[in-house]
Design a binder for these strands. Sequence first.
DNA 1: TAAGCTTAGTTAACGCTGGTAACCACCGGT
DNA 2: ACCGGTGGTTACCAGCGTTAACTAAGCTTA
Lengths: 231, 231
Amino acid sequence: MREATSREIKEIARRHLVAHGAAGVSLRAIAREMGMTAPGLYRYFASLHDLLDSLRADLFTELTDAVAAAQAALPEDDTDGRVLAALRAVRAWALGNRAEFTLLFGPAVTDTGPEEDSPAAVAGQRFAAAFVSLFDRLLAEGRFAPPPAEPEASAELRAQLDAFAACTGFTGDHASDAATRFMLRSWVRFYGLVCMEVFRHLGFVADDLGALFEAELRDLVTGLGVVYRAP
Amino acid sequence: MREATSREIKEIARRHLVAHGAAGVSLRAIAREMGMTAPGLYRYFASLHDLLDSLRADLFTELTDAVAAAQAALPEDDTDGRVLAALRAVRAWALGNRAEFTLLFGPAVTDTGPEEDSPAAVAGQRFAAAFVSLFDRLLAEGRFAPPPAEPEASAELRAQLDAFAACTGFTGDHASDAATRFMLRSWVRFYGLVCMEVFRHLGFVADDLGALFEAELRDLVTGLGVVYRAP
DNA sequence: TAAGCTTAGTTAACGCTGGTAACCACCGGT
DNA sequence: ACCGGTGGTTACCAGCGTTAACTAAGCTTA
């Protein structure tokens, strides 16, 4: 009952998101489409910001599920295939859901930084955990040796890496400063690759940058000890 | 006279941009601050979108100037230093002007894609040209050999690379498909690095990710035949 | 069965937004 | 003395998030 209405609201909100961007999601328009008035929506969400945050949480789990589904088709022990499938699943979801990806990974709309305990934040951490576990698996299999930290690595950097590891749950037996650092580097690189394509900053090139993506992916996973395989 | 008013409008708009984000720039608030009424601003800009586009153009040239200024302090023949200084200048400007960087390099606010002939677009191309010329210089000096294209490189990819080269003005004697591809890959990687930091998706780590940036920068420029040098 | 509380929704209102139309006052040129 | 353009104004439209006050059900409990 109540849950169904809540879902319908988010469903309509998502349609407006893809149609007009994040700024085009309005309570009044949603209410109008539902045959309601805007204040009625406040029975379900404390504010527009809360609605969007809840929507973000849903989208994070949808993306996480897509990543899991892509891996489910492969045998359990096919680590190479799972890594490639997971990364490709992220790109595919991002391209198929540009507005949603922007909401999740675009610039933080609030200047207060991301809230620690919001539903979207915890869903985002579960998404991150999926890739952390894959990275941990590569480490466990001894696929590669993370480049040792330079001697001039400051204590400040070390503290930052510890915070990152703690936040993403990268605290297994194979965790180390060097490993954390390499995981972060790999993720940053992949993030930029997808962002560039989704944000259309390469729009003058073409709509489908699949070939470039695959070339970068090959380079990226090779550094992680994964043998590349064409899609 | 008229030019001065136009500049004042954009100046105030920029203040509102950094204070409340791109969505917080409103004609009425600007007019109020100027002791005017909102419709008066339409004598200077056809719409809010036009104002933001003009502001984008200004910011692109400001960033381009910052990159040039960083290089100006170095001797003319110090290619390594110039490359490092230029890339560091982009990061420094981005961190010092987060909201402005987001406006330039964040997700495209319009769903119609970037307009071809808007003032911001041409200013953006001049910004790109600064790095294209640096890349061309590295090629001219034979600093590195761009990795040869895989045999399975499709004709589609080739066409995309040609479009990219034409759009960025990368048409010198040293231009080739392999070179264009490597330039694009390098830029995408750098873009992701800066975006991740500016968009605060690593906010849980720390505010200053300088050490991580330098580590990535070292890896990146080394691949371009530039000998790394600490800042 | 009647009283009372909770829930889901309403209307009315405040103050804000971008944008348009009509109008006005000034200032330079003929 | 008149005329046109420039730089503004007021009045208005439609839309926005949010709050306050209220109403109509439905369920609980004495």
